[in-house]
Simulated assay, not measured.
Amino acid sequence: MIERIETGIAPSSAPINDAVRADKHLWLVAIAEDPVSGEIVEGGIEAQTRRCIDNLAIALKAAGGSLRNLVMVQIFLTDSADAAGMNAVYREYFTEQPYPVRATVVVKELLAAGLKIEMTATGVLD
């Protein structure tokens, strides 16, 4: 059975979920959207990466977990030149081994204007 995790981040008007759970497994997605204003955060790749990871953390907390429960993160960037800034912020959040498995892909564009990064993640609850 698949259960929606209510995070308060995904717009209720869109046909999407930002987190679902099946048994102990979690699937999550995050963009650099402020959960209060619904606006894409400004400030470059560092600010957008921080917001994405914070949004993942919010979703994980709503499911009863934390960033330590992630086993894989997929990152989509619109500019390969942003990889260094993204990695710098990523290292602030993921400091202990084992790190989640990670894939980073550069894409032409993301859905929302001004969006530089999007993340999907898979996690397992204890």
Rank of each mutant, 00 (worst) to 15 (best):
G114S: 01
T78E: 12
R102F: 10
E96L: 11
L77M: 13
G38E: 09
A62F: 03
V107I: 02
T122I: 15
T120I: 15
L28C: 05
R91Q: 14
A88D: 13
V73S: 03
D54V: 08
G85S: 04
L115H: 13
F94Y: 01
F94I: 03
F94H: 01
E33L: 09
S37E: 15
V107F: 02
L60E: 02
G38L: 09
M119N: 00
R102M: 12
L70C: 07
I117N: 00
Y93C: 05
A81Y: 05
I75L: 13
E96P: 02
G123V: 01
S37P: 15
T104M: 07
E109R: 11
R68A: 04
V41M: 11
E42I: 12
G44E: 04
G85P: 07
S80F: 00
R68P: 14
T78A: 09
A103W: 05
T78I: 04
I31S: 15
S37V: 15
I75R: 11
T120V: 12
V29R: 07
Y90H: 03
V71R: 14
A113T: 12
A47K: 10
I45N: 00
N55S: 04
A112S: 15
A112V: 11
E109Q: 13
V105T: 13
A62Y: 04
G123D: 06
I45S: 01
D82S: 05
Q97W: 02
E118Q: 11
L60D: 03
A83L: 15
T78L: 11
M86H: 07
Y90D: 01
V107G: 07
V101K: 13
A112N: 15
N55Y: 03
T95L: 09
I45C: 12
P100Y: 00
